[in-house]
Design a protein around this nucleic acid. Structure first.
Length: 478
RNA sequence: GCGGCCUUGGUGUAGCCUGGUUAACAUAAUCCCCUGUCACGGGAUAGAUCGCCGGUUCAAAUCCGGUCGGCCGCGCCA
């Protein structure tokens, strides 16, 4: 479309005959003349088909959401017809020619109105239509803008963006894995990453010093308003840093990014509370520092919480880690770990970033020496053989000159929820899934064919007994 | 795994508690009228056996039981 003019640029073309391309938002049939609102990704404009226009015949066919190329003269509106405060309210397109590029069925809901009142089942079935709505366009464009600014900031700070594998090893002590069967190794499975944690640490061993990735993370745990199977994180790791180095960087990044997007921050530098202080002061490790007035103004209130307890009791009376087994103890408590004493009191160099009541990120300075890391697993009751099986590769890597390192992961959806004011994670994802894990538009998950199962060496075992074929039930809307 | 709420034309709701008429309203849709509309307006038409199964009753959208689906929370989420 070489000659196409974007709707937002039309005011530069007054007096000229131009062609726009986009969708019909509204048709207002006025008898002898017809008005339209046209929409492209850049904006909206009114077009008018006058009685003598050769486009009249085509104009009568057009309906909402038809896709059209429209040629006409951009004219200033008469004073009486100017619409104050409306985009392109001072001009209109005097239509000479309409080419219908594609028709549209009557949409199940009005995409030019606010779709938040439409049932979510319908919105997700027709997500491609919901995405045309102003709110979804705004949310996803803001998301893109945020990620772009983060990337630019990190590149400016000499970070290297590196992708880590999607098909990787299961980590039984974390959350439940999504698992992928291996065709070449029947009976064996890859797991999708819950986080790039181990790979990014290995990148530090690999000498990159400053890594980041806009990384997808996948966890098979029940969904919530602010939690889905998949989410995206800004994943960062740095060598030769301590806690404050990472917090300083994140603070600078979030300040520059959010202020660049026009947001106002409540407090700079971000207040920092130890976990003990936060619990004493707020009764929780995440909290909302905004006043009602701040909330009304859309102010962002960031804070850090640091020095979390390393371990907590399990139901069985043993110990497990509170946040991350790869974290390092604070210097004063290193001996306690090695001597296996005061376990419940050991603090770790773990920090969370909190904003407007959400925990939007967490990280730590990692243990970069094999002995203390191994000790963490011993405290948690793992045998020598189990430790070797689970993290033997990390212990081995750390024997080859692993630098001290630390990092953080920030939840992109959580951040966008605070930026947009949306209450649901799904509103800042293009194609979210339902609470029970049914994908938008498409019908995943679905049974595999017998042939697919056979190739993978799989058979379906139901709770009441084995079965040879794929399940025949399941799958929504079909 | 547990608890709560919800399901009525394409869409969003009312009606349900207190069983009984032609299931109402808005909007979208179709057709007609309209030369300045911009949430255009006016008129006409069409569209739901009330998620599904069963029970109670002379009679069920309405009461009862079950179930599918959706949402919210708890558990879970290093």
């Amino acid at each position: 479309m070489k000659n196409r003019v974007l709707i937002k640029d039309l005011r530069k073309n007054i007096g000229q005959t131009v062609t726009i391309s986009g969708w019909v938002s509204v048709r207002r049939n006025q008898g002898k003349m017809v008005f339209f609102d046209f929409r492209d990704a850049s904006g909206t404009v009114q077009g008018v088909v006058l009685p003598a226009s050769p486009a009249m015949e085509e104009a009568k066919i057009l309906r909402p959401e038809y896709v059209v190329a429209v040629t006409g003269e951009v004219v200033k509106r008469g004073e009486k017809n100017v619409q104050q405060g409306k985009e392109n309210g001072g001009l209109e397109l005097r239509i000479e020619k309409i080419t219908t590029l594609n028709a549209s069925e009557t949409p199940p809901f009005d995409v030019t109105a606010d779709t938040s009142g439409i049932g979510e089942e319908t919105r997700l079935e027709y997500r491609y239509l919901d995405l045309r709505s102003e709110r979804m366009q705004k949310n996803l464009r803001m998301r893109s803008d945020f990620v772009r600014r983060v990337r630019e900031f990190l590149f400016k700070k000499s970070f290297t963006e590196i992708e880590t594998p999607l098909l990787t090893e299961s980590t039984p002590e974390g959350s439940r894995d999504f698992v992928v069967p291996s065709r070449l190794h029947p009976g064996s499975f890859y797991a999708l990453p819950q986080a790039p944690q181990q790979y990014k640490q290995l990148l530090m061993v690999g000498g990159f010093e400053k890594y980041f990735q806009i990384a997808r993370a996948v966890r098979d745990e029940d969904l919530r308003a602010d939690r889905g199977f998949e989410h995206t994180q800004v994943d960062i790791e740095m060598s030769f840093v301590d806690e404050s180095d990472v917090m300083d960087l994140v603070e600078e990044m979030m300040t520059e990014t959010c202020e660049g997007m026009g947001f106002v921050l409540k407090e700079k530098p971000f207040p920092r509370f130890t976990y003990a202080e936060a619990v004493a002061k707020f009764g929780a490790d995440k909290f909302d520092l905004r006043t009602e007035e701040d909330k009304a103004k859309g102010v962002l209130a960031f804070a850090f919480v640091y020095q979390f307890p390393f371990f907590e009791k399990t139901d069985e009376g043993g110990w497990t880690f509170t946040h991350n087994p790869f974290s390092r103890t604070i210097a004063e408590h290193a001996d306690w770990l090695m001597q296996n004493k005061n376990i419940g009191k050991i603090l770790t160099m773990q920090y969370d970033l909190v904003c407007n009541g959400y925990e939007i990120g967490g990280g730590s300075v990692r243990e970069h020496k094999p002995e203390p890391l191994k000790k963490v697993y011993e405290v948690m009751g793992y045998s020598e053989a189990e430790i070797e099986e689970r993290i033997g590769h990390m212990l081995k890597a750390f024997t080859y000159g692993a630098p001290p390192h630390g990092g953080i992961a920030l939840g992109v959806e959580r951040i966008l929820m605070t930026l947009t004011g949306e209450k649901y994670l799904r509103e800042v994802q293009a194609f979210p899934m339902t609470r029970r894990g049914q994908t938008a538009v498409m019908n995943a998950p679905k049974p595999l064919t017998k042939e697919q199962l056979a190739e993978l060496g799989l058979s379906i075992v139901k709770k009441d007994g084995p079965s040879t074929g794929p399940a025949t039930t399941g799958g929504k809307k079909s």
